[in-house]
Amino acid sequence: VAENVAGDPNRGVASGGAGGLWFPYLCESTERTGRWANETRVRYEQLLQDGLGFEDNGVAVKDVWQCYSPGNDLPPWAPDCPTLELLSVAQVEEKYAPGLPQYMIDQDDFLAYQFEAPIVQVDLFLGHLRRLIEGMGGALVERKVAGPIESLEADVLVNCAGIGNAVEVEGLESDARMRPVRGQIVHCENRANITEAVTIGAGAESAYMIPRGDVVVYGGTSDDGQWDLSVNEDTVEDIIRRCKKLLPEEYTQGMEDRIVGHWVGLRPYREEMVSVEAKTLEDGRVVVNNYGHGGSGFTLCWGCADEVVRMAQAPGT
């Protein structure tokens, strides 16, 4: 159930312009999200082994390295990520060559690690999913639902309305735990042939870059509770400032001249937990929720989908 179809670049839903990096963000940090994340990572890796190329599914595995201020811990998915390794100060300094910037020297016990992760070019990947559904005999039909979700004629109903669950709409009860977390990013040409993703969190400031197949994504923002989908020019300038301050210089040279577009999307954040749960209607049909993934839609998608199938087949378990 969704009014705005994910991946349509003209409809303001987050997945259409997302960075596409496999990395749990703005979702609960628990065993189950760690499991969903690693199940999804494995499925991406299987796609690469199925003989389809990048132009078919938009999936590539690339190096990722991240640095965070003191006090941060390794995420719960880390023990199950076979390529993850901690980085020493010397290794981070080498990545910043010729030397660490002052803001990192001032916090020399920061957390740093690297790993390999899938990165998807979202338009190609979502097109792959559409073809997958159609190849199994499924059909994608867009129409308004007139009445409650239970009025739909189906044995199993899955609520994937995302941020739509935060508001009262016909046929859908609002979820008081849901709210948008606005994200704004900058798309740049990849003239420097950037092949690794980098995230730096230094105190109250952060910056990241993600090389998709078509552009390099620089970001970003997490504007809690904001619904505005317009591009804020002051935010553009601030993203450029933070990226130039925090990221290695070789990745931000001439950044202003490489801009090819901007994107604003609303992450469907849900307090406490992602809603993946089932209920049985009086007539015996099953409704399964699958929403509230925050900034982790492409990170949790396969794991959550498998969970939805299990719940639909045995809703009481």
Score class of each variant (00 low, 15 high):
P75L: 11
C243S: 09
D214C: 04
D155K: 08
A207I: 12
G137S: 08
D175E: 13
E153I: 13
L140D: 09
W77V: 15
S69A: 08
Y251N: 07
G265I: 07
A314G: 12
A78I: 04
I119K: 04
V309D: 10
C160M: 05
F125R: 04
S206W: 05
E277K: 09
N72P: 03
I194D: 05
Y251L: 14
V145M: 06
M104S: 05
V122L: 08
P70A: 08
F23T: 14
Y103G: 02
G53S: 13
Q102L: 06
F110A: 06
V216Q: 01
L247H: 03
C301H: 09
Q121H: 14
L300Q: 05
A117F: 00
V1D: 04
D257C: 13
Q226I: 15
D56W: 09
P75K: 07
T221P: 00
E173Q: 14
S15C: 07
Y251V: 11
V260H: 01
R179K: 15
G20I: 08
V274C: 03
G183F: 05
W36V: 04
V141P: 00
S69D: 12
G99W: 12
S15W: 07
T280K: 03
A78Q: 12
V158S: 01
V42P: 00
V309L: 09
L140P: 05
V309W: 04
L87C: 08
G265K: 03
G292D: 03
V309I: 14
A90V: 15
G137T: 12
A6E: 05
K95W: 06
A2V: 15
E39K: 13
Y291A: 00
D306T: 11
A117R: 07
L140F: 03
K62A: 06
V216F: 01
V13H: 01
E271C: 07
Q121F: 02
E3T: 15
D234S: 06
E31M: 08
S69N: 06
P79R: 15
Q253E: 14
A90D: 09
L86M: 14
G17D: 06
N57R: 10
Q253I: 14
T40A: 02
F115T: 04
G138W: 04
T195K: 06
R179Q: 14
P180S: 05
F23L: 07
G219W: 01
T83K: 01
P70I: 11
E189F: 09
E173D: 13
D50Y: 03
E233Q: 11
M311C: 01
G34R: 06
W77N: 05
L281G: 01
G213Y: 05
D228E: 14
R41F: 00
Y96W: 02
L246E: 03
P79G: 00
C301D: 11
L84C: 03
R179F: 06
P24W: 09
I210R: 01
F23C: 06
R242S: 11
R179V: 13
Q253Y: 11
T317Q: 11
R130S: 03
Q226H: 10
E45L: 10
N72V: 14
N159M: 08
F125H: 02
V61H: 04
E256R: 13
E271Y: 05
D73A: 12
E134V: 13
S230R: 14
D80M: 12
D106T: 09
P9I: 08
R241K: 15
I194S: 11
A112Y: 00
P101G: 04
V309A: 15
